[in-house]
Design a protein around this nucleic acid. Structure first.
Lengths: 196, 196
DNA sequence: TCTCGGCCCAAGCAAGTGCTTGGTAGGCTA
DNA sequence: TAGCCTACCAAGCACTTGCTTGGGCCGAGA
Protein backbone atom coordinates (compact mmCIF):
# COMPACT_ATOMS: atom_id res chain seq x y z
CA UNK A 1 0.00 0.00 0.00
CA UNK A 2 2.74 2.45 0.90
CA UNK A 3 4.72 3.65 -2.09
CA UNK A 4 7.91 1.78 -2.82
CA UNK A 5 9.95 4.95 -2.53
CA UNK A 6 9.02 5.76 1.07
CA UNK A 7 11.10 3.65 3.43
CA UNK A 8 9.43 2.41 6.57
CA UNK A 9 9.91 4.89 9.38
CA UNK A 10 10.87 3.70 12.83
CA UNK A 11 7.40 4.66 13.90
CA UNK A 12 5.77 2.48 11.26
CA UNK A 13 8.07 -0.36 12.18
CA UNK A 14 7.01 -0.13 15.82
CA UNK A 15 3.36 -0.09 14.77
CA UNK A 16 3.89 -3.23 12.73
CA UNK A 17 5.55 -4.97 15.65
CA UNK A 18 2.76 -3.91 17.98
CA UNK A 19 0.11 -5.12 15.53
CA UNK A 20 1.74 -8.54 15.39
CA UNK A 21 1.68 -8.85 19.16
CA UNK A 22 -1.84 -7.48 19.54
CA UNK A 23 -3.06 -9.97 16.96
CA UNK A 24 -1.24 -12.90 18.51
CA UNK A 25 -1.91 -12.47 22.20
CA UNK A 26 -4.59 -9.79 22.37
CA UNK A 27 -4.48 -6.08 23.08
CA UNK A 28 -4.88 -6.19 26.82
CA UNK A 29 -2.66 -9.20 27.12
CA UNK A 30 0.20 -7.39 25.42
CA UNK A 31 2.20 -5.05 27.62
CA UNK A 32 4.14 -2.02 26.47
CA UNK A 33 7.20 -3.88 27.72
CA UNK A 34 6.41 -6.74 25.35
CA UNK A 35 6.27 -4.36 22.43
CA UNK A 36 9.48 -2.63 23.48
CA UNK A 37 11.25 -5.96 23.95
CA UNK A 38 10.24 -7.11 20.49
CA UNK A 39 11.57 -3.84 19.10
CA UNK A 40 14.80 -4.06 21.06
CA UNK A 41 14.25 -0.90 23.14
CA UNK A 42 12.99 -0.06 26.62
CA UNK A 43 9.32 0.49 27.30
CA UNK A 44 9.69 4.18 28.11
CA UNK A 45 11.19 4.80 24.70
CA UNK A 46 7.90 3.88 23.05
CA UNK A 47 6.44 7.07 24.45
CA UNK A 48 8.75 9.09 22.30
CA UNK A 49 6.76 7.84 19.32
CA UNK A 50 3.26 7.39 20.72
CA UNK A 51 0.99 9.00 23.30
CA UNK A 52 -0.24 5.74 24.70
CA UNK A 53 -0.74 2.06 24.03
CA UNK A 54 -4.31 2.98 23.18
CA UNK A 55 -3.29 5.31 20.39
CA UNK A 56 -1.26 2.49 18.85
CA UNK A 57 -4.28 0.22 18.31
CA UNK A 58 -6.25 3.23 17.26
CA UNK A 59 -3.85 4.02 14.47
CA UNK A 60 -3.60 0.38 13.42
CA UNK A 61 -7.36 -0.13 13.23
CA UNK A 62 -8.47 3.17 11.77
CA UNK A 63 -6.03 3.16 8.87
CA UNK A 64 -6.99 -0.40 7.99
CA UNK A 65 -10.70 0.38 8.10
CA UNK A 66 -10.23 3.36 5.82
CA UNK A 67 -8.57 1.21 3.19
CA UNK A 68 -11.13 -1.57 3.48
CA UNK A 69 -14.13 0.69 3.03
CA UNK A 70 -12.55 2.39 0.06
CA UNK A 71 -12.66 -1.07 -1.49
CA UNK A 72 -16.34 -1.51 -0.69
CA UNK A 73 -17.14 1.86 -2.18
CA UNK A 74 -15.47 0.88 -5.44
CA UNK A 75 -17.58 -2.25 -5.64
CA UNK A 76 -20.81 -0.39 -4.91
CA UNK A 77 -20.00 2.20 -7.56
CA UNK A 78 -19.20 -0.33 -10.26
CA UNK A 79 -21.60 -1.22 -13.05
CA UNK A 80 -21.34 -4.99 -12.57
CA UNK A 81 -24.46 -7.13 -12.08
CA UNK A 82 -25.59 -7.83 -8.50
CA UNK A 83 -24.23 -11.33 -8.26
CA UNK A 84 -20.78 -10.25 -9.42
CA UNK A 85 -20.74 -7.46 -6.88
CA UNK A 86 -21.46 -9.91 -4.09
CA UNK A 87 -18.70 -12.17 -5.32
CA UNK A 88 -16.34 -9.22 -5.47
CA UNK A 89 -17.18 -8.20 -1.92
CA UNK A 90 -16.46 -11.71 -0.64
CA UNK A 91 -13.16 -11.82 -2.52
CA UNK A 92 -12.20 -8.40 -1.18
CA UNK A 93 -12.69 -9.63 2.38
CA UNK A 94 -10.55 -12.71 1.95
CA UNK A 95 -7.88 -10.60 0.30
CA UNK A 96 -7.94 -8.27 3.30
CA UNK A 97 -7.44 -11.26 5.59
CA UNK A 98 -4.43 -12.20 3.50
CA UNK A 99 -2.84 -8.78 3.21
CA UNK A 100 -3.79 -7.33 6.59
CA UNK A 101 -3.90 -10.39 8.74
CA UNK A 102 -2.88 -8.68 11.96
CA UNK A 103 -5.34 -5.84 11.56
CA UNK A 104 -8.26 -8.13 10.82
CA UNK A 105 -7.40 -10.36 13.76
CA UNK A 106 -7.21 -7.41 16.11
CA UNK A 107 -10.50 -6.07 14.86
CA UNK A 108 -12.20 -9.43 15.23
CA UNK A 109 -10.92 -10.04 18.74
CA UNK A 110 -10.96 -6.58 20.29
CA UNK A 111 -13.69 -4.59 18.55
CA UNK A 112 -16.28 -5.45 21.20
CA UNK A 113 -14.10 -4.40 24.10
CA UNK A 114 -12.58 -1.33 22.48
CA UNK A 115 -15.89 -0.22 21.02
CA UNK A 116 -17.15 0.63 24.50
CA UNK A 117 -14.63 3.45 24.75
CA UNK A 118 -15.65 6.74 23.27
CA UNK A 119 -12.43 6.96 21.37
CA UNK A 120 -13.28 3.86 19.39
CA UNK A 121 -16.83 4.80 18.56
CA UNK A 122 -15.93 4.72 14.89
CA UNK A 123 -15.69 0.95 15.12
CA UNK A 124 -19.44 0.71 15.69
CA UNK A 125 -20.02 3.20 12.88
CA UNK A 126 -17.91 1.16 10.49
CA UNK A 127 -19.81 -1.92 11.56
CA UNK A 128 -23.11 -0.29 10.66
CA UNK A 129 -21.62 0.97 7.42
CA UNK A 130 -20.60 -2.57 6.52
CA UNK A 131 -24.14 -3.74 7.23
CA UNK A 132 -25.53 -1.09 4.91
CA UNK A 133 -23.16 -2.13 2.15
CA UNK A 134 -24.09 -5.79 2.40
CA UNK A 135 -27.82 -5.23 2.76
CA UNK A 136 -27.71 -3.07 -0.35
CA UNK A 137 -25.88 -5.80 -2.25
CA UNK A 138 -28.21 -8.54 -1.05
CA UNK A 139 -31.38 -6.58 -1.79
CA UNK A 140 -30.32 -5.80 -5.33
CA UNK A 141 -29.41 -9.46 -5.70
CA UNK A 142 -32.96 -10.45 -4.83
CA UNK A 143 -34.48 -7.73 -7.03
CA UNK A 144 -32.35 -8.81 -9.96
CA UNK A 145 -33.55 -12.38 -9.46
CA UNK A 146 -30.02 -13.58 -8.77
CA UNK A 147 -30.78 -14.56 -5.17
CA UNK A 148 -33.56 -16.56 -3.55
CA UNK A 149 -36.37 -14.40 -2.24
CA UNK A 150 -37.42 -16.65 0.63
CA UNK A 151 -34.54 -15.91 3.02
CA UNK A 152 -34.20 -13.50 5.93
CA UNK A 153 -31.63 -11.12 4.46
CA UNK A 154 -30.57 -9.85 7.86
CA UNK A 155 -29.60 -13.39 8.82
CA UNK A 156 -27.94 -13.96 5.46
CA UNK A 157 -25.84 -10.89 6.08
CA UNK A 158 -24.78 -12.07 9.52
CA UNK A 159 -23.87 -15.50 8.26
CA UNK A 160 -21.77 -14.12 5.43
CA UNK A 161 -20.06 -11.57 7.64
CA UNK A 162 -19.27 -14.09 10.36
CA UNK A 163 -17.96 -16.83 8.13
CA UNK A 164 -15.85 -14.53 6.03
CA UNK A 165 -14.12 -12.62 8.80
CA UNK A 166 -13.75 -15.42 11.30
CA UNK A 167 -11.64 -17.21 8.72
CA UNK A 168 -8.81 -15.03 10.04
CA UNK A 169 -8.58 -17.52 12.88
CA UNK A 170 -7.34 -20.33 10.70
CA UNK A 171 -6.24 -18.78 7.40
CA UNK A 172 -2.48 -18.31 7.23
CA UNK A 173 -0.97 -16.06 4.55
CA UNK A 174 1.51 -18.03 2.51
CA UNK A 175 -0.11 -21.32 3.49
CA UNK A 176 -1.43 -24.10 1.27
CA UNK A 177 -4.52 -22.27 0.14
CA UNK A 178 -4.47 -18.82 -1.43
CA UNK A 179 -7.06 -16.30 -0.37
CA UNK A 180 -8.60 -16.56 -3.83
CA UNK A 181 -8.95 -20.32 -3.57
CA UNK A 182 -10.64 -19.97 -0.21
CA UNK A 183 -12.94 -17.30 -1.59
CA UNK A 184 -13.94 -19.50 -4.53
CA UNK A 185 -14.77 -22.44 -2.30
CA UNK A 186 -16.78 -20.28 0.05
CA UNK A 187 -18.69 -18.70 -2.81
CA UNK A 188 -19.45 -22.16 -4.16
CA UNK A 189 -20.95 -23.15 -0.80
CA UNK A 190 -22.70 -19.87 -0.18
CA UNK A 191 -24.31 -19.55 -3.59
CA UNK A 192 -25.26 -23.13 -4.37
CA UNK A 193 -25.13 -24.96 -1.04
CA UNK A 194 -23.53 -28.23 -0.09
CA UNK A 195 -26.48 -30.50 -0.87
CA UNK A 196 -26.31 -32.68 -3.96
CA UNK B 1 -29.39 -30.17 33.42
CA UNK B 2 -29.21 -30.28 37.20
CA UNK B 3 -32.14 -32.09 38.77
CA UNK B 4 -34.98 -29.94 39.96
CA UNK B 5 -34.60 -31.21 43.49
CA UNK B 6 -31.01 -30.05 43.98
CA UNK B 7 -31.01 -26.35 44.89
CA UNK B 8 -28.19 -24.24 43.50
CA UNK B 9 -25.28 -24.20 45.91
CA UNK B 10 -23.48 -20.99 46.74
CA UNK B 11 -20.56 -22.36 44.79
CA UNK B 12 -22.68 -22.93 41.67
CA UNK B 13 -24.14 -19.48 42.02
CA UNK B 14 -20.68 -17.94 42.10
CA UNK B 15 -19.69 -19.95 39.05
CA UNK B 16 -22.73 -18.68 37.20
CA UNK B 17 -21.91 -15.09 38.12
CA UNK B 18 -18.31 -15.55 37.04
CA UNK B 19 -19.37 -17.10 33.73
CA UNK B 20 -21.57 -14.11 32.99
CA UNK B 21 -18.71 -11.70 33.56
CA UNK B 22 -16.15 -13.80 31.68
CA UNK B 23 -18.53 -13.96 28.72
CA UNK B 24 -19.31 -10.26 28.76
CA UNK B 25 -15.93 -8.69 29.28
CA UNK B 26 -13.46 -11.52 28.76
CA UNK B 27 -11.57 -13.74 31.15
CA UNK B 28 -8.45 -11.64 31.58
CA UNK B 29 -10.44 -8.45 31.63
CA UNK B 30 -12.52 -9.66 34.55
CA UNK B 31 -10.91 -9.34 37.96
CA UNK B 32 -11.63 -11.43 40.99
CA UNK B 33 -12.84 -8.21 42.58
CA UNK B 34 -15.38 -7.82 39.78
CA UNK B 35 -16.71 -11.30 40.44
CA UNK B 36 -16.83 -10.73 44.18
CA UNK B 37 -18.59 -7.38 43.73
CA UNK B 38 -21.23 -8.97 41.52
CA UNK B 39 -21.76 -11.63 44.17
CA UNK B 40 -21.90 -9.11 47.01
CA UNK B 41 -18.83 -10.35 48.85
CA UNK B 42 -15.16 -9.42 49.10
CA UNK B 43 -12.59 -10.79 46.69
CA UNK B 44 -10.75 -12.80 49.29
CA UNK B 45 -13.92 -14.69 50.13
CA UNK B 46 -13.95 -16.25 46.70
CA UNK B 47 -10.94 -18.29 47.69
CA UNK B 48 -12.99 -20.13 50.21
CA UNK B 49 -14.83 -21.72 47.29
CA UNK B 50 -12.18 -21.91 44.59
CA UNK B 51 -8.44 -22.43 44.32
CA UNK B 52 -7.94 -19.74 41.74
CA UNK B 53 -9.58 -17.68 39.05
CA UNK B 54 -8.14 -20.18 36.60
CA UNK B 55 -9.98 -23.09 38.16
CA UNK B 56 -13.24 -21.19 37.78
CA UNK B 57 -13.03 -21.02 34.00
CA UNK B 58 -11.72 -24.51 33.95
CA UNK B 59 -14.81 -25.82 35.69
CA UNK B 60 -17.12 -23.71 33.55
CA UNK B 61 -15.62 -24.85 30.28
CA UNK B 62 -14.97 -28.50 31.01
CA UNK B 63 -18.44 -29.27 32.30
CA UNK B 64 -20.02 -27.57 29.30
CA UNK B 65 -17.81 -29.46 26.86
CA UNK B 66 -18.69 -32.76 28.47
CA UNK B 67 -22.38 -32.13 27.97
CA UNK B 68 -21.93 -30.92 24.39
CA UNK B 69 -19.97 -33.92 23.25
CA UNK B 70 -22.42 -36.28 24.83
CA UNK B 71 -24.88 -34.72 22.40
CA UNK B 72 -22.59 -35.31 19.43
CA UNK B 73 -22.12 -38.94 20.45
CA UNK B 74 -25.86 -39.48 20.47
CA UNK B 75 -26.14 -38.12 16.95
CA UNK B 76 -23.28 -40.25 15.67
CA UNK B 77 -24.78 -43.35 17.23
CA UNK B 78 -28.25 -42.79 15.79
CA UNK B 79 -29.57 -44.66 12.79
CA UNK B 80 -30.72 -41.55 10.91
CA UNK B 81 -29.59 -40.91 7.33
CA UNK B 82 -26.50 -38.77 6.79
CA UNK B 83 -28.30 -35.58 5.90
CA UNK B 84 -30.50 -35.72 8.95
CA UNK B 85 -27.49 -36.27 11.19
CA UNK B 86 -25.87 -33.14 9.80
CA UNK B 87 -29.05 -31.19 10.37
CA UNK B 88 -29.24 -32.52 13.92
CA UNK B 89 -25.64 -31.49 14.63
CA UNK B 90 -26.33 -27.96 13.43
CA UNK B 91 -29.47 -27.75 15.54
CA UNK B 92 -27.62 -29.08 18.57
CA UNK B 93 -25.05 -26.30 18.25
CA UNK B 94 -27.61 -23.52 18.05
CA UNK B 95 -29.43 -25.02 21.00
CA UNK B 96 -26.17 -24.97 22.96
CA UNK B 97 -25.75 -21.30 22.12
CA UNK B 98 -29.21 -20.71 23.47
CA UNK B 99 -28.95 -22.76 26.64
CA UNK B 100 -25.30 -22.18 27.48
CA UNK B 101 -24.71 -18.75 26.07
CA UNK B 102 -22.04 -17.74 28.56
CA UNK B 103 -20.07 -20.92 28.21
CA UNK B 104 -20.07 -20.82 24.43
CA UNK B 105 -19.02 -17.18 24.43
CA UNK B 106 -16.16 -17.87 26.80
CA UNK B 107 -15.01 -20.81 24.73
CA UNK B 108 -15.15 -18.78 21.52
CA UNK B 109 -13.26 -15.83 22.92
CA UNK B 110 -10.73 -17.42 25.21
CA UNK B 111 -9.99 -20.90 23.87
CA UNK B 112 -6.97 -19.70 21.91
CA UNK B 113 -5.37 -17.94 24.85
CA UNK B 114 -6.25 -20.55 27.46
CA UNK B 115 -5.32 -23.42 25.18
CA UNK B 116 -1.66 -22.50 25.45
CA UNK B 117 -1.65 -23.44 29.11
CA UNK B 118 -1.05 -27.07 29.91
CA UNK B 119 -4.07 -27.14 32.16
CA UNK B 120 -6.36 -26.35 29.26
CA UNK B 121 -4.89 -28.85 26.87
CA UNK B 122 -8.25 -30.59 26.75
CA UNK B 123 -9.61 -27.65 24.80
CA UNK B 124 -7.42 -28.55 21.85
CA UNK B 125 -8.37 -32.20 22.23
CA UNK B 126 -12.06 -31.33 22.18
CA UNK B 127 -11.45 -29.20 19.13
CA UNK B 128 -9.90 -32.12 17.30
CA UNK B 129 -12.71 -34.36 18.49
CA UNK B 130 -15.25 -31.95 17.04
CA UNK B 131 -13.38 -32.00 13.75
CA UNK B 132 -13.52 -35.79 13.69
CA UNK B 133 -17.25 -35.76 14.34
CA UNK B 134 -17.95 -33.31 11.56
CA UNK B 135 -15.62 -34.88 9.03
CA UNK B 136 -17.30 -38.22 9.68
CA UNK B 137 -20.70 -36.68 9.13
CA UNK B 138 -19.63 -34.88 5.97
CA UNK B 139 -17.90 -37.89 4.45
CA UNK B 140 -20.91 -40.13 4.98
CA UNK B 141 -23.01 -37.36 3.48
CA UNK B 142 -20.94 -37.45 0.31
CA UNK B 143 -20.89 -41.25 0.20
CA UNK B 144 -24.64 -41.40 0.60
CA UNK B 145 -25.01 -38.98 -2.29
CA UNK B 146 -26.66 -36.40 -0.06
CA UNK B 147 -23.84 -33.89 -0.43
CA UNK B 148 -21.92 -32.53 -3.42
CA UNK B 149 -18.70 -34.38 -4.09
CA UNK B 150 -16.77 -31.47 -5.59
CA UNK B 151 -16.06 -29.56 -2.38
CA UNK B 152 -13.05 -29.48 -0.09
CA UNK B 153 -14.59 -31.08 2.99
CA UNK B 154 -11.97 -29.64 5.31
CA UNK B 155 -13.03 -26.15 4.23
CA UNK B 156 -16.70 -27.06 4.45
CA UNK B 157 -16.09 -28.15 8.03
CA UNK B 158 -14.36 -24.89 8.92
CA UNK B 159 -17.10 -22.82 7.37
CA UNK B 160 -19.83 -24.67 9.21
CA UNK B 161 -18.00 -24.59 12.51
CA UNK B 162 -17.20 -20.89 12.24
CA UNK B 163 -20.63 -19.73 11.20
CA UNK B 164 -22.46 -21.82 13.72
CA UNK B 165 -20.43 -20.95 16.78
CA UNK B 166 -19.69 -17.33 16.00
CA UNK B 167 -23.44 -16.72 16.06
CA UNK B 168 -22.99 -16.47 19.81
CA UNK B 169 -21.79 -12.94 19.18
CA UNK B 170 -25.16 -11.71 18.06
CA UNK B 171 -27.71 -14.35 19.10
CA UNK B 172 -29.55 -13.40 22.28
CA UNK B 173 -31.55 -16.01 24.18
CA UNK B 174 -35.12 -14.83 24.53
CA UNK B 175 -34.77 -12.47 21.58
CA UNK B 176 -36.91 -12.25 18.45
CA UNK B 177 -35.58 -15.39 16.85
CA UNK B 178 -35.53 -18.77 18.54
CA UNK B 179 -32.49 -20.97 18.20
CA UNK B 180 -34.53 -23.35 16.09
CA UNK B 181 -35.55 -20.62 13.68
CA UNK B 182 -31.95 -19.54 13.28
CA UNK B 183 -30.89 -23.14 12.74
CA UNK B 184 -33.55 -23.63 10.04
CA UNK B 185 -32.47 -20.52 8.17
CA UNK B 186 -28.83 -21.47 8.38
CA UNK B 187 -29.54 -24.99 7.15
CA UNK B 188 -31.51 -23.56 4.24
CA UNK B 189 -28.50 -21.46 3.25
CA UNK B 190 -25.93 -24.12 3.92
CA UNK B 191 -27.68 -26.92 2.10
CA UNK B 192 -29.15 -25.15 -0.90
CA UNK B 193 -27.30 -21.85 -1.14
CA UNK B 194 -28.56 -18.34 -1.57
CA UNK B 195 -28.55 -18.23 -5.38
CA UNK B 196 -31.88 -18.39 -7.20
C1' DT C 1 -25.13 -25.29 75.99
C1' DC C 2 -21.12 -26.25 73.36
C1' DT C 3 -18.77 -26.98 69.25
C1' DC C 4 -17.76 -27.18 64.63
C1' DG C 5 -17.97 -26.37 59.82
C1' DG C 6 -19.63 -23.29 56.15
C1' DC C 7 -19.19 -18.68 54.81
C1' DC C 8 -17.41 -14.40 54.99
C1' DC C 9 -14.49 -9.97 56.36
C1' DA C 10 -10.32 -6.92 56.99
C1' DA C 11 -5.93 -6.11 55.72
C1' DG C 12 -2.24 -6.62 53.02
C1' DC C 13 1.68 -8.65 49.97
C1' DA C 14 4.34 -9.36 45.68
C1' DA C 15 4.27 -8.97 41.04
C1' DG C 16 3.00 -6.59 37.21
C1' DT C 17 0.75 -2.56 34.77
C1' DG C 18 0.81 1.99 31.82
C1' DC C 19 3.12 5.97 31.86
C1' DT C 20 6.43 9.99 33.38
C1' DT C 21 10.67 12.13 34.25
C1' DG C 22 15.31 13.93 33.48
C1' DG C 23 18.89 12.93 30.90
C1' DT C 24 22.37 11.25 26.90
C1' DA C 25 24.40 10.26 22.18
C1' DG C 26 24.77 11.26 17.61
C1' DG C 27 23.55 13.47 13.31
C1' DC C 28 21.89 17.47 10.49
C1' DT C 29 21.82 22.33 9.42
C1' DA C 30 22.52 27.32 9.53
C1' DT D 1 30.31 25.47 16.19
C1' DA D 2 26.03 26.36 18.21
C1' DG D 3 21.44 24.85 18.21
C1' DC D 4 18.17 21.60 17.37
C1' DC D 5 16.17 17.04 16.34
C1' DT D 6 15.51 12.02 16.53
C1' DA D 7 15.92 8.10 19.17
C1' DC D 8 16.75 6.13 23.11
C1' DC D 9 18.01 4.88 28.41
C1' DA D 10 17.54 4.48 33.56
C1' DA D 11 14.75 4.89 37.21
C1' DG D 12 10.67 5.04 39.31
C1' DC D 13 5.65 6.37 40.46
C1' DA D 14 0.82 5.30 41.14
C1' DC D 15 -2.12 1.95 40.52
C1' DT D 16 -4.11 -2.87 39.65
C1' DT D 17 -3.75 -7.69 39.78
C1' DG D 18 -4.34 -12.55 41.85
C1' DC D 19 -3.88 -14.45 46.04
C1' DT D 20 -2.85 -15.10 51.34
C1' DT D 21 -3.49 -14.77 56.22
C1' DG D 22 -5.88 -14.68 60.48
C1' DG D 23 -9.89 -14.15 62.46
C1' DG D 24 -15.24 -13.57 63.29
C1' DC D 25 -20.26 -14.77 62.82
C1' DC D 26 -23.93 -18.02 62.82
C1' DG D 27 -26.86 -21.98 62.37
C1' DA D 28 -27.08 -27.14 62.98
C1' DG D 29 -26.07 -31.23 65.44
C1' DA D 30 -24.30 -33.49 69.90
Amino acid sequence: MSAVSTPESRRDELLRIAAGLFAERGYRNTTVRDIADAAGILSGSLYHHFDSKESMVDEILSSFQAELFAGYDEILASAAPAREKIEAAVRLSFRAIDEHHHEVAIFQNEADQLGRMERFGYLAERNEQSRQVWMTLLRSGVEAGALRADLDLELVYRFIRDTVWVAVRWYRPGGELSHDQVAEQYLAILLDGIAA
